[in-house]
């Protein structure tokens, strides 16, 4: 038992160290991919803990069922040292796992908050119940949910995008499920998120902070298009405005 415990602790520390090395790569990171990767690691971690406890629990429930009425449990009486050990050792295992997960989480978190310098800025304004996007050249775009008209957020593929967000009325949250990111918008404050559109395509962004009657309908199309197409689109949008 003790050997297994120390092996687990070492494994935790070892992976944390390996992770620190892996974090030092160049190039523009892809936070969504890192998120997915971390999610699988976390699931594995949870699965192991869950299986250990559940098996022990269900096995004991089955094994120690009373065989006759008025039977009394025969739990051994542990001495003080064993009891302290049985509290301290698991505590350290839990803490080791916590630190292991915290270290992994922190690495990906830094990716999430470290906006690449060349990121394209888009200003996002949330209001009940629509999103508006403003580009650096003054072009503005939005998406009307009822008529399905408008382009919504259009971004060039391969260029990181940072959203500078504020709200005109209540708290909203800009949630990009496909890019594994969300951040609240509030009146009087400015918040950020960034994402890396690696592939062309279309997805959605939706409001994730309760904002009243049409909360469910506060969503927008998000289009990832090749750079040339984006340049043409944003120029045309500017003329239209």
């Amino acid at each position: 038992m003790k050997r297994a415990v120390s092996a687990m602790v070492l494994m935790g520390l070892g992976s944390a160290a390996a992770l620190a090395e892996a974090g030092a790569k160049g190039g523009i990171p892809d936070p969504a991919a890192s998120w997915n990767h971390l999610w699988h690691d976390v699931l594995l971690d949870l699965f192991i803990i869950g299986i250990v406890f559940l098996t022990a629990g269900l096995y004991w429930v089955w094994k120690y069922r009373a065989s006759r009425p008025n039977q009394i449990g025969t739990a051994p009486k542990f001495d003080k040292i064993t009891l302290i050990g049985l509290a301290v050792v698991p505590s350290f295992i839990f803490m080791a796992d916590d630190f292991y997960l915290a270290a992994k989480g922190w690495t990906v978190w830094n990716e999430y908050r470290d906006v690449p310098r060349n990121a394209m800025e888009v200003k996002v304004t949330g209001s009940m119940w629509s999103w508006n996007f403003e580009y650096d050249n003054g072009a503005s775009s939005s998406f009307v949910v009822d008529s399905k008209e408008g382009d919504g957020l259009v971004v060039p593929v391969g260029k990181p995008v940072v959203l500078r967000m504020t709200s005109t009325d209540v708290v909203h949250s800009f949630f990009l499920p496909d890019y594994r990111v969300k951040e609240d918008l509030m009146p009087g404050r400015v918040t950020y998120l960034w994402f890396n559109p690696v592939k062309a395509g279309e997805t959605i962004a939706t409001c994730a902070e309760y904002c009243g009657n049409r909360h469910s309908f506060m969503w927008t199309k998000v289009k990832m298009v090749p750079q040339a197409e984006f340049d043409a689109w944003v120029a045309k949008k500017k003329q239209g405005a």
Binding site: E121, R164, T166, T168, P187, G188, R189, V190, Y192
Partner: peptide, 8 residues
């Protein structure tokens, strides 16, 4: 201010 806060 609402329009310009957060501008880089």
């Amino acid at each position: 201010e609402q329009k310009f806060l957060g501008v880089k």
